[in-house]
Amino acid sequence: MSEAPMIEVRDLNKTYRAGDIDVHALQGANLEIAKGEFVSIAGASGSGKSTLFNILGALTPPTSGTVKIDGKDLAGLSNSERTLLRRNTVGFVFQKYNLLPTLSAEDNIRIVQYIGHRATAFDPEFREVLNILGIADRMQHKPRALSGGQQQRVAIARAIVNGPAILLADEPTGNLDSQNSTAVLNLLSDLNRRLGQTILMITHDQEAASYASRAIHMRDGRIV
């Protein structure tokens, strides 16, 4: 491939201090993802998958090592450039959904459009996405009134509404039945194929991983 990779991770370390002990969440991780790839990431609990995502999404800084997104070194970015990256380039589906509890499902999505300076209205295409996800009739509910799986699908809709170049999906089917899982996975494949979005998806599920074009594994803070 002649093109620069969309994501380039070199010798990445992340150490959390939990009280007196250091937790080495990432220990020398290396990774290259080309533009338009759909990659699944598997690994034991605690192997550092979510930590890697947080760093890729510029949510938390690494302890050492470099991360380049679309050729730009994250360490060299200012605060507001990092804000722009989160706003325009990366879409995040959190393992724990992280919806705003005071807003309805619809407004949780709209506020992301608003922050991204997009029109805060759903076009027919996006309405179709909500239908596929099976949450179109749950839009007026607050997160509290939604099941875990419904919240997860609202979180997915929120992550893709602004059409980010990179989608980081942390166990997006973790709480879904097989029918909804299939719908979500088909949606992600479609986004990947049709819009060329680069997708990283953490999953423990073999079936889900088979939708990706490449599978990588993590163990003890490294990619193996």
Binding site: T83, L84, R87, L100, I115
Partner: peptide, 16 residues
């Protein structure tokens, strides 16, 4: 704290 974190994660600036 959490809500503010979420807003920042989806691209909200400090001034927002």
């Amino acid at each position: 704290t959490r809500e503010i974190g979420i807003l920042k994660a989806v691209g909200a600036s400090s001034s927002f």
